[in-house]
């Protein structure tokens, strides 16, 4: 009698596990916070669960090139998803722009005006993500170039290997200023701490962040997740962290 109950329970568990999948998603560091929220929302809505691996886009792309078992990749740029498509690792036709990154000049000291400190040059170290590796770093150098501060500031650069490390340099006060992702310093549309200057978008090229599905035959859960990310609920989450989404961007364009 008891035994048959167990069998029934086991059968139920098995059938549930057959349909419910665990997705493993590789996500660029700058998108860590919104992705945690998106994953939770998706888990609530479906019976799938989501595991998220954070890192720099370069490292995650390198791992994918070596066969890392991710279902989806959210890059901080467009180049790496493109490369994965070219190598046949990403699902063809699956790439889309999930967010346009926001760049901010930030200081952990709330009493200063970061823009003024930058223009006056009254700082000893300024942190930015390594422009060789990170799109936020490229955008930061474009800003400095457009402000005619590139050469003057160069000796005072400290480079984070990704945007999370760049944040850490500024947060610990070791660099007075730093170019970070808006998503790192904002929550629900408000600055969490310190002082920031949201960099005007005309000072750098848009930071287009693309996502791709991985594998020739992505699973149903992975496709569902990709569709979910493009839905209205998620668009709201993404914009609350200071990103723009493509729809909003095309509306703003003339």
């Amino acid at each position: 009698m008891i035994k048959s109950h167990y069998l029934l329970l086991l059968a139920c568990l098995l059938s549930a596990t057959v349909r419910a999948e665990t997705l493993t998603i590789a996500v660029a560091s700058n998108f860590a916070k919104p992705m945690s929220e998106i994953a939770r929302a998706f888990e609530k809505e479906s019976n799938h669960s989501v595991r998220v691996a954070f890192g720099s886009s370069g490292k995650l792309a390198a791992q994918l090139l070596q066969g890392a078992p991710f279902h989806m990749f959210f890059s901080a740029d467009q180049d790496k998803p493109e490369l994965l498509l070219k190598r046949g690792i990403a699902t063809s036709g699956s790439s889309f722009t999930y967010a346009l990154g926001g760049l901010a000049l930030w200081s952990s000291d709330p009493t200063i005006d970061p823009e003024r400190v930058l223009r006056e040059g009254s700082f000893t170290k300024i942190a930015l993500a390594n422009p060789r590796l990170a799109p936020y770093g490229i955008a930061a150098t474009e800003v400095l170039l457009n402000l005619a501060l590139l050469e003057a500031s160069k000796p005072r650069w400290v480079l984070g290997e990704n945007i999370a490390q760049t944040y850490q340099f500024v947060e610990s006060g070791n660099a007075e200023l730093g170019f970070v992702a808006t998503s790192q310093i904002m929550e629900n549309g408000k600055l969490i701490k310190g002082a920031s200057w949201p960099v005007p978008q005309n000072l750098h090229n848009p930071i287009r962040q693309d996502a791709v599905l991985i594998g020739k035959q992505p699973s149903r859960a992975a496709r569902e997740f990709a569709a979910f990310v493009r839905g209205a609920e998620v668009t709201n989450i993404i914009e609350r962290y200071g990103y723009q989404t493509v729809e909003a961007d095309s509306r703003a364009a003339p």
Partner: peptide
């Protein structure tokens, strides 16, 4: 070395 690897 790490930078070279990261830059693929």
């Amino acid at each position: 070395i790490y930078d070279h690897v990261e830059a693929l």
